[in-house]
């Protein structure tokens, strides 16, 4: 495993604050981005996380497909939210599985949106049940799925934070700043 220096200064300055500051993915998608920047997000515990994300990507897309194809009129808002959840799970899965800088940024955004979605839809489904004639993946804070949808984005964000560059396997504590979103 040859390991050219990962440019710690560049990484430390660019990542936590401004995602929009990033260079276009096409230019950096090659060797440099896939080199080891901290720990990869897609091995070890990360691979188990990817497995669970795959399960939810399948569950949510199957659910949304059936709902929208067979009875869209019954609860369009709920079913569109199911579809949105499905897309987010898929993109988060891909982001985590890529394990490079672009994938990491994608996953951070997806996990954040996902967490906000679970909290928002969960709260709305309890406060204004009339909005949701049928359940989505995120209704009742993911209660229909053992509350895994509530826990999953938190695990994802914690994992992304732990594997950031500069944070060695020894674990947290060396970085003071939290991972921005959430």
């Amino acid at each position: 495993m040859s390991e050219p220096a990962p440019r710690p200064v560049d990484r430390a300055g660019a990542r936590p604050t401004a995602p929009e500051h990033a260079t276009p993915p096409g230019d950096r998608g090659g060797d440099r981005a896939t080199q080891r920047l901290g720990r990869r997000t897609n091995s070890g515990p990360g691979r188990a996380l990817v497995a669970v994300y795959i399960l939810f990507a399948i569950a949510a897309s199957a659910r949304a497909t059936v709902q929208i194809a067979t009875r869209f009129d019954k609860a369009p808002v709920a079913y569109l939210l199911s579809a949105l959840a499905a897309v987010i799970y898929i993109v988060a899965t891909v982001g985590l599985a890529r394990g490079d800088a672009v994938g990491r940024r994608t996953a951070v955004i997806c996990c954040s949106v996902e967490f906000a979605g679970v909290l928002g839809v969960g709260a709305l489904s309890l406060l204004r049940p009339a909005l949701f004639p049928d359940d989505t993946v995120w209704s009742d804070f993911g209660g229909g799925y053992g509350y895994v949808p509530l826990v999953l984005p938190v695990l994802g964000l914690l994992w992304l934070r732990r594997t950031r560059s500069g944070v060695a396997d020894a674990g947290g504590g060396s970085r003071v700043r939290a991972a921005g979103p959430r």
């Binding site: 691979r47 188990a48 399948i58």
Partner: peptide, 30 residues
Amino acid sequence: LLTLVCLPPLAGVLARMEPTRWGSVIVTVV
């Protein structure tokens, strides 16, 4: 039904990609 028949191969592929204890976690979860 489609999901069901895909799950064991999914677990198998991911478990082989991850020859650590986390591979066992994947098999357990699936």
